[in-house]
Nucleic acid binder design. Structure first.
Lengths: 351, 351
DNA sequence: GTGAAAGCGCTAACAC
DNA sequence: GTGTTAGCGCTTTCAC
């Protein structure tokens, strides 16, 4: 079990390109060409080299490669709490799927908290990744402009209008409209919006929650209704508390549009405690997290198609990496409304 | 916005150690010593070099570093579906926390499916990571022995008894005993075990689900009861279907011990549809995923303390990396039972 | 089509 | 204490 293995902590060296060249009796340059399947190698040479590679079990050293060329590594930067988010898994699945067979390896660089978000991107630059996908990172547009000078960057979920990096987002306006259409058609008029505080952002960096709020307000006004926005912390518990307050109001809403599913689920909990159902107060979320589909929750919500977002992000990166494109793309994908049991026609009891 | 920026796809080069040396008017070796805070640098030298580093915004090139020394990168290898698992997030949080301030960066290398699990580890070797934490990967003990000849490896959640790599696991036997104690004390006797198929493993590689099943069977037998094992696919939906079948049985169980929380939650869904509660059939899960604590679910479950597992794994890796240790460690941590509302005393209705 | 040689950015061994 | 040198593993001219 230990022959040639680890001897008092000293570790094995892997065969290098030189080793392969010597074994095959050819030059290092020839081997390099073969592993890159570059032009100018005879079939015979290809054979000999490949044989040596197989015999030695040779694999290229990514770090060394990265010094002259690429590392064949695409990275997703995100915060650790996001990892548990179903939306994140969807994006990752899409990205990994799109990369299969390309020779690129996907890695995820998690940041412990928002203070380290920028540092994580730096760590990726240090490691010479070929492309970066950033998701819900607390990094402003200026910093992203800087990063994108060194490596192609795609931002997911934010509507920045940068000329140096690309963005892929769902169309929050459409998503909100779908949700509002649904609630209005069910006869609701007192529709409140539960959302989170959004930092003072430049117009460059439009976080989704700001857009959703604007879309909500616009739609309420054009429908001749009064917007009612409730700000809460981004936790289920805060939403729960906020909803309790709303329900205790003199004129409580008959429907709630939540900024995202976690808030919606907090609201549902408050309703459950008060013994209220969907015909009393209808609730719509945003994101279609896994819990939303659970029969005990059954939340009507907007699905952003995370897998598609991930696939698209990778496509954009590969275009830039190959040099096929240098002008920015800002892709907007259509979301869909998933109707479940948390919404129902308005009960015609009170005025 | 574009001065010195990206010009038709060509990207900026970052300052190198040489650039810093020239700027400070010293030798590259001196700069190298400063950034590694090695011995033999005068305070004056340290000052000059640091100033140049700050002015240029210099950061070391990880790939180049890795050619002679380390990459200061620790990697977690896992399958994508696991990312959404709260247990995974816990482990990652623990690992990242333990690494803060050490200069090491944590990355996650996700494998799209179990066929690629070994390939992901190879990709990490190619990238010269300094240590690997493997979680629920479909890689046998032999392969891990091979990998651990090149880089320190810690396996989480499996009870392999390798002499070359370390393991950190919760004590599945204790966990099952805690759950069984609880169910037995509530008066349950017809206790079924819902679990997933486990590959034909060598005795070397004991996957947790095999151990949990064995512990369950042993405990049933020593209690004079008949074990009843139901195998299902590892999805909530399969568990749901399996549970429906169980409930339709002539003599349905009064309690179910699930191999993990997702199975338990599937079982709960089946019960909810049949209008059954905890006093009809009590359900215990394993892992304490976030959803388990949700008031609408409230699942009694075994908590493996994922954060602690992650911290421990990193400690073991750092010991090996520093060369402090070369003999294997196999750490077993005590889990705890979290009692919630999915378990209750057995209703004394039917015989 | 193939090989020799230089160099990517860094560290380690050794002069000074 | 500081600088010089060689070389890690690879790619890339550029001769041949």
């Amino acid at each position: 079990m230990n022959e040639e293995g680890v001897v008092n902590g000293r570790r094995k060296r892997r065969p290098s390109l030189r080793d392969v060249a010597m074994r095959a009796g050819v030059s290092p340059a020839a081997v390099s060409k073969v592993i890159r399947s570059a032009y100018g190698v005879s079939p015979a040479m290809q054979q000999r080299v490949q044989a040596a590679i197989d015999e030695l079990g040779y694999r290229p050293h990514t770090g060394a490669r990265g010094m002259r060329a690429q590392t064949y590594t695409i990275a997703i930067g995100s915060e650790i709490p996001q990892l548990g988010n179903d939306f994140f898994t969807q994006v990752t699945t899409g990205a990994a799927g799109e990369l299969t067979g390309t020779g690129y390896q996907l890695i995820i660089a998690p940041s412990l908290d928002s203070k380290n978000d920028q540092e994580v991107l730096n760590a990726l630059l240090d490691r010479q990744v070929d492309g970066i996908i950033a998701i819900s990172l607390n990094v402003d547009a200026n910093a992203l402009e800087q990063f994108s000078q060194y490596v192609p960057v795609v931002l997911i979920g934010r509507h920045d209008q940068s000329s140096n990096y690309d963005t892929v987002t769902n169309d929050d306006e459409v998503g909100v409209d779908l949700a509002m259409d649904h609630l209005l058609s069910l006869g609701h008029t007192r529709i409140a919006h539960l959302t989170i505080r959004v930092g003072a952002d430049t117009p460059e960096s439009q976080p989704p929650h700001a857009l959703r709020k604007q879309a909500y307000e616009r739609r309420m006004v054009t429908s001749g209704l009064h917007p009612r926005v409730v700000i809460t912390e981004p936790s289920e518990n805060s939403a729960y508390t906020a909803m309790l307050a709303l329900l205790a109001d003199q004129v409580p809403p008959t429907a709630v549009l939540a900024g995202h599913d976690t808030l919606a689920i907090g609201a549902l909990r408050a309703m459950a405690e008060r013994g209220l159902g969907a015909s009393d107060v209808s609730v719509v979320g945003y994101d279609n997290i896994e819990l939303a589909s659970h029969p005990l929750v059954s939340l009507t919500t907007v699905d952003q198609y995370g897998v598609l977002l991930g696939e698209t992000a990778v496509k954009l990166l590969l275009e830039r990496i190959k040099g096929d494109r240098s002008d920015p793309r800002h892709v907007l994908l259509e979301p869909a409304l998933i109707v479940r049991r948390s919404t129902a026609a308005r009960a015609s009891l009170p005025a």
